[in-house]
């Protein structure tokens, strides 16, 4: 592990009203690897993921304690600009959420609002990221169509392209294949593996087989507690915690 990972969580506690969802979570996320957060449903996986780009903020009754450092800046520091934090991360949600506009405009959305791409180059940029997401060939003749006409699998890759176009360093996936058919899932997984060369990838999943397929690093959450984390090969071969062992053998799920 590197000395200074650019994403580090320190003593993170999250409360929904009185309920404590995350308990004192501390973890350094390794750069340019796929970190997979696993654990039974309702254990706080998604909450942990969303706390990384402050998507918990708009919810009523949520309180966050502790620090999340991105490039050594605490994103929960009141002086931190939340849009800057979010620009550093692309999000894939459980169900793809294309924005109510054309395929082209979906990818151009980020560059447009951040105004960091020259108008003339926008077309090239859109193409570049659609290629990166492996969608270009399928949509190049219908860029003006509403994004909602794509199949769900294509929509998820569109969301990936849209997220990449903002120029993030980190990609967050919240069970990004749970709404997809097996072939589309495989397609998305392959993209993620390609992308870890350039990005740090964090994926939440409840599918153990998927974790084994793509993970370099594993974080196991159980009832809001980070029970075990480490390189995937090690954790799968020699789980230290009995709860982790029980999860791997399918006794708890």
């Amino acid at each position: 592990m590197e000395i200074r990972p650019h994403l580090s969580v320190q003593n993170l506690n999250v409360y929904f009203d009185q309920l404590r969802i995350l308990k004192d979570v501390s973890i350094d996320i390794p750069d340019h690897k796929i970190t997979v957060i696993i654990g039974p449903s309702g254990c706080g996986k998604t909450t942990l993921l969303k706390s990384l780009n402050r998507l918990l903020d708009p919810l009523d009754g949520v309180r966050v304690e502790g620090r999340v450092l991105v490039d050594n800046v605490d994103i929960y520091d009141p002086r931190t600009e939340v849009t800057e934090v979010r620009k550093k991360m692309g999000l894939l949600s459980q169900r793809p959420q294309p924005l109510p506009m054309s395929i082209y405009d979906n990818v151009a959305y980020g560059p447009r609002i951040h105004n960091h791409v020259d108008k003339k180059r926008l077309g090239e940029v859109v193409e570049q990221y659609l290629r990166m997401a492996g969608l270009w060939e399928e949509v190049k003749d219908r860029l003006g169509e509403p994004a909602s006409r794509l199949s769900v699998g294509q929509q998820q890759r569109l969301c990936l392209a849209r997220g990449l176009a903002v120029g993030p360093e980190i990609i967050l996936g919240d069970e990004p294949t749970s709404a997809l058919d097996p072939q589309s899932s495989q397609n998305v997984e392959r993209r993620l593996i390609e992308l870890k060369e350039e990005y740090t990838v964090i994926v939440v999943t409840h599918i153990l087989r998927q974790a084994k397929r793509i993970a370099d690093y594993i974080a196991f959450l159980y009832l809001g507690e980070l029970v075990e984390h480490g390189p995937a090969a090690e954790v799968f071969a020699n789980p230290r915690d009995p709860r982790m062992r029980a999860y791997l053998t399918g006794e708890i799920s």
Binding site: T83, R86, L91, Q94, Q97, L99, I113, H114, V166
Partner: peptide, 17 residues
Amino acid sequence: PYQMREASLSLGATKWE
């Protein structure tokens, strides 16, 4: 759906955008 707003926010859009 709230997730659609989330998608836009996660791209670094402000609330007003």
